[in-house]
Design a protein around this nucleic acid. Structure first.
Lengths: 341, 341
DNA sequence: CAGTTATTGAGGTACGTAAATCAGAAATTT
DNA sequence: AAATTTCTGATTTACGTACCTCAATAACTG
């Protein structure tokens, strides 16, 4: 049977209280005794029963999610997933609070983090805005002993414990790999539709896309990037006019939100003239366009997985446990109309 | 605070013992009283603290994994993942046993299940062989109250609680969708390399592949399926001779194991004559071929995810809880050289 | 060596639930 | 109405760990 603290006490020839002192790093144990206990622990292969420990502690993990109040489908979906997680969290001893902040606003985010810090939660997950002030705040959170996970958008070089999101550069490269193979032997121009170059994830996707295209598919000409600020109407106009100006557009990579406008523009074209289209995020409109054949491939990040992964990591970090790296890697899903879930 | 059994007892005006009887379906409670208790449960929003319950029960989940002793990379990897899960399982109260059986052998599998049944484990996961005897055995397992999950290969129409594996037909369709787009405008022949048509997953992949190709890409001619029995040497020979006979082969879909032979054959060709290649399972050789550009895309099922998902489901079923469907859907990963993990 | 401090032991209570016993009350049958 | 059966309450122990107190011993200090 699994060894318990009692077994350790017996094996080390000490009392339960001493084992407890060692296990929980409490003072009042000679180093010789401590070593004896630790030896017993490792030789018996003792692992603390986390469930029982938490029961005894009466602990409830309190976590806070800070989410931007963007109104695109992806962020709405993300907030929904957090809400679902909250509903489920009652069963375990987890208490989740959420806070929404204006998007792309570093100062608002810092202010929110400040507020949250005062409540001393066990952990925080937030969609990072890439700014020095946010990095500094993250440092302070860590110093206060709070577990920190960035969600969807990372904060490289900061003190965060973990990033629950996809590798956006790899996503861009993958889009290029697909696009290159789709257009292989045909040539033509490739248009790129982005949200905003101020967003780190958009920049990274673009970077990955351009680098692979330049290196592996030099025959494809790339048009200047269109920035549609994740706005469907603007996106539609930009795409339409680009298609009118350049009849030889063979491929479009839409790396941001606002795909509804793009889809509208595509639907207006004659079917045989339509370019190959790769987009991001499997929203309901993207899904419809995929089935319809307007979009060829959608790269997706599963918001549900991201939220659950963030929670698992927060819990592990709060318990001081290690995480299963392979399990927490958020994958880039590639959907064709043939493998829609 | 979270309500406990004590709160329910007080609120319903009954004793703790009665609450316990209701909660655990024990006899000896009048239906009127039972209703009162249930009302208190739902009005207080009581949820059983599973951790405390398991602690009290002193329960250790015992699960058995039955795995074929195939020696291809995927099965080796699967067995490794089960071993990893066993190593981690000590921390929770889970005891995992494994059993290996000869592959593709329904009777051996049934015999193994029979043995396992006598040990009365809480749950069983096994790689199914599609046979009526296995279906019947599954029925008996369920009747004995054992949670049953099929792993990697399903047993449709059986009594199993869950299937932890990919949708192989969708995988075949996806391969066809990619292949069709890769070869769009070029035409040519497409060769299919399979392991054995006796394997349900291979049949399903082929079916999906052929149906999409026929429907969406009628210009592509499909060569008769080559069966290499998942043997690398044979696969290499088959591919080489097919390429020699048909110089216009533009695409190859390898839907089984034994990719090393295929890769060897590809490496022997002049680079500019190489066809587009889509294969299954991201083994180390497939990964190398992907980076090298010999293979264009690899469809993969993550054995680690499958094992962890199977375990989660077994545990939930053993506890009589529901599972998060979205979390347990095993996805078809698509890897290009650009998004290798 | 007495006095002080640092260790250690012994024991208890608590967390929320399970499971058991036994006595008593209520309902049902005879 | 008595006997029997069915239901319910009260109480206890247990699971594995955390955390507390008090007493006892060991190790240092002056």
């Amino acid at each position: 049977m699994k060894p318990t603290v009692h077994d350790i006490a017996r094996s080390a020839g000490v009392s339960l209280a001493t084992v407890d002192r060692v296990l929980n790093g409490r003072p009042g144990v000679r180093s010789i005794t401590r070593e004896r206990v630790e030896e017993a622990i490792s030789s018996l292969g003792y692992v603390r029963d986390v469930a029982a420990a938490n029961l005894a502690k009466g602990r409830t993990y309190s976590f806070t999610f800070i989410l931007p109040d963007n109104d695109n489908s992806f962020m709405i979906g993300l907030r929904d997933e957090v809400r679902l997680a909250m509903a489920r969290s009652g069963a375990e001893r987890v208490l989740i609070r959420t806070l929404t902040v204006p998007p792309f606003d570093a100062e608002a985010l810092v202010a929110a983090l400040e507020t949250v810090l005062e409540e001393q939660p066990a952990g925080i997950a937030f969609v990072a805005v890439d700014a020095p002030s946010v990095r500094a705040m993250t440092q302070r959170l860590k110093e206060a002993g709070v577990a920190v996970v960035t969600l969807v958008s990372d904060l490289p070089g900061s003190a965060r414990d973990h990033y629950a999101g996809i590798d956006n550069q790899a996503a861009g490269r993958t889009a290029a790999g697909l696009m290159g193979r789709f257009l292989d032997g045909k040539g033509g121009r490739v248009a790129v539709l982005a949200g905003s170059m101020l967003l780190r994830d958009h920049r990274e996707r673009l970077e990955g896309f351009l680098s692979v295209l330049a290196e592996d598919y030099p025959k494809l000409a790339i048009l200047p990037v269109m920035e549609a600020r994740d706005d469907a109407t603007l996106a539609g106009e930009l795409v339409s006019s680009a298609l009118a100006r350049h009849p030889d557009i063979a491929g479009i990579y839409s790396l941001g939100a606002g795909n509804r406008g793009l889809i509208r523009a595509l639907r207006d074209m004659k079917a045989e003239r339509r370019p190959r289209v790769i987009a991001h995020e499997l929203t309901s409109s993207a899904r419809a366009a995929l089935s319809e054949g307007l979009i060829d491939a959608v790269l997706n990040q599963d918001a549900g997985h991201e939220v659950r992964s963030a929670l698992r990591v927060l819990k592990s970090k709060a318990d001081g446990l290690s995480v299963i790296a392979a399990q927490e890697r958020i994958r880039i899903d590639i959907f064709l109309k043939d493998n829609l879930p």
